[in-house]
Nucleic acid binder design. Structure first.
Lengths: 206, 206, 206, 206
DNA sequence: AAGTAATCGAGACGGTACGTCCGGTCTTCCT
DNA sequence: AGGAAGACCGGACGTACCGTCTCGATTACTT
């Protein structure tokens, strides 16, 4: 988050930021998230668990949501490794299966809480978009664009809307819980997005 | 919510529930939601504004989320009137346009906050599902089922997933805000759901 | 303090103030004062010890100094019972001995801290003046005035300054600690105030 | 305070103490005292204003009270210049007028705060006694002793108690504020101390 | 008409967490 | 070896809401 720019700048005078404290905070926050959800991940609890003063946390993160999302990313981002094969159907399916699998466990419950908190914490919302949602969208955008270039998909395809039709349903089920994130979902989503719901698709393009 | 059963039951002894108080609470809550969002819609604020004691609110609603969603529904449900025409494309488009229009104003911001709060308030989540999300899904389910019966849509269509591909993107944009809820969205969603993203759709089904 | 007016006023609506809480707070504060001085008598400590929430304390006292002085008065005021005999010398001596005795123990140390805190807490200062200092001054004023009326003391005597020459030295030694509050002090103060320091007092009055 | 011994010691190895820093600290502290009282004269504020690190202050003063009193003395001690004339009445009056005048302005308010802080800061208390109170007492002791030796005052006079009856009232009014430090006070104090309050003083001593 | 019971307003209460402030201590680099 | 800079832990601050609790007052049904 801010680490990058700090690492670039020369140390300068003054006691340098304690890496030990930073990691202790993120670990404490991640543990608390897993154990008692975002509700139990209070600044006081993080500080107490990390053996750190509250001020130190506020020094580097603006809100508890911000700490939580950083802690979440540190722990769960690595679980979503995707390798592009060039086959649209396969790649989209792969991406959705990865996400559905990740969201079916504790990581999904926590993500739902983070999205919830983001509705009243702009900083958290921004981090969530920039660090979690956008990277996945960019990978998927590449997959779709290439397919368009190869002529497999319509040239006038609204890529953003298509992305939302692939991922939106997953987040929708995650946050509203009207339907479970079942195994059949990824395939159903990919099939309809690619081939549509019609029984006898009319040839189109003219 | 609970009103129905109360009104059905015989009066019994004791002072009856004050309808005046109930309406004052819902109006106060709705006003507060519009003015200062769910964050500002605290039990204390509602009570103060409605000229009602906090206990009276707790008597009839379990949490502030519950009051908020009731107040929201009372104010915004009437804005989403849909009439079924029998034309799948038209009806789906109509439903989505109604929703996108509704969510583009203050009502959308508040809905996002309600969904946010629902992540840590099961009662609110349930009300939201039962009173807001499901009714729309049922109407849309009817539209899709009829089209399937008429042979317009695939008989093996996963209706639930399809609903999520229509509405999910709207809620996704509403809560994550990575893209605006623009005018072009409904048409793009309906087109891809019906006809797919492929350039030269392969005949399928037999 | 506020109790009086509250007891006079009709209860009014709402849950009445908890006398149990009030006494628990004052007792806790008094105990803490004795054990760890004003420094250790923090709002948090009082609240914890009294089994009371901080808000309840703030509801009735504006600052921790205010609680402390109330607690002090409740515990130590009764120790200073004075009965007027009509003999100036005896009465002044009696008043000073009472005060010096009281201030020689823990009560004196605490009073010194209260006076210290009063320098940056106007509410505490006011209570100290009104509840502790003034009552003693009024009693002593009566003693002096009567002696003036009887012709024992100069009719043009500056009573306020005289009071300060009797009590001021005690508070001076209490707060500055340049000299102990020894047994000989009261007599020395009374003698000099009445008869002066001169070896061969000039008859005056002409 | 500690300066003297440091300046006497040979330079030794390493960077010598920065006189610039010492003066900057004292000036900053004095300014802050005048502007916002002892409450506003925090270590952080002094450091920031003096352009000095907090550690540098802690290096030379044990507490903020200690800095404050040094800063106070540096600024206000020179205002109390007294010259002994040999006339008891005149000299005592002179000393009291000087003090009352000094304490009537901002210097008095700050002194009151210093005395207040001294109640929970033994180091400050000691400095206050040694650097401020005692010097005045010694001068006054000399005045009284000489008068005793000349036979003007009782040979068995309790000098310490008498000093307290002269200065105590001033500090009493300064800290308790039950009466203002008015112009008439010094004369009233001196008169009663010398001649007593009695209307027809009985000859005493033999 | 009296009695009973549920509700209402007001508001005090214990509790949890908030975000801030300051005190002292520490670590690093600079001079 | 100072000293400036500034991060760090700790502890208390005063505040905001929460959800619960007592009050006295009201308002209907029940007897």
């Amino acid at each position: 988050l801010r680490t990058a720019s700090v690492e670039l700048s020369r140390p300068g005078p003054g006691r340098p930021r304690s890496e030990r404290a930073r990691l202790a905070i993120l670990d404490a926050a991640a543990d608390l998230l897993v154990e008692s959800g975002l509700t139990g991940t209070t600044m006081e609890a993080i500080a107490a668990r990390a053996g750190v003063s509250k001020v130190t946390i506020y020094k580097w993160w603006p809100s508890r949501g911000a700490v939580a999302v950083d802690a979440y990313l540190r722990r769960y981002r690595p679980t979503m490794r995707f390798t592009d094969t060039g086959d649209v159907t396969h790649d989209l399916l792969e991406l959705l299966v990865l996400m559905v699998d990740a969201f079916r466990g504790r990581a999904g419950e926590i993500m739902a809480e983070l999205i919830g908190a983001a509705q009243s914490d702009p900083a958290l919302a921004e981090t969530l978009r920039a660090q979690w949602v956008q990277p996945r969208r960019e990978v998927t955008t590449a997959v779709l664009r290439r397919a368009v270039e190869r002529g497999e998909l319509r040239p006038d395809l609204d890529v953003q809307a298509t992305l939302d039709q692939l991922f939106g349903p997953v987040y929708f089920r995650l946050t509203i819980r009207h339907q479970p994130l079942d195994d059949a979902l990824p395939a159903a989503l990919v099939r309809t997005v690619l081939d549509g719901a019609r029984a006898h698709p009319a040839p189109h393009g003219e």
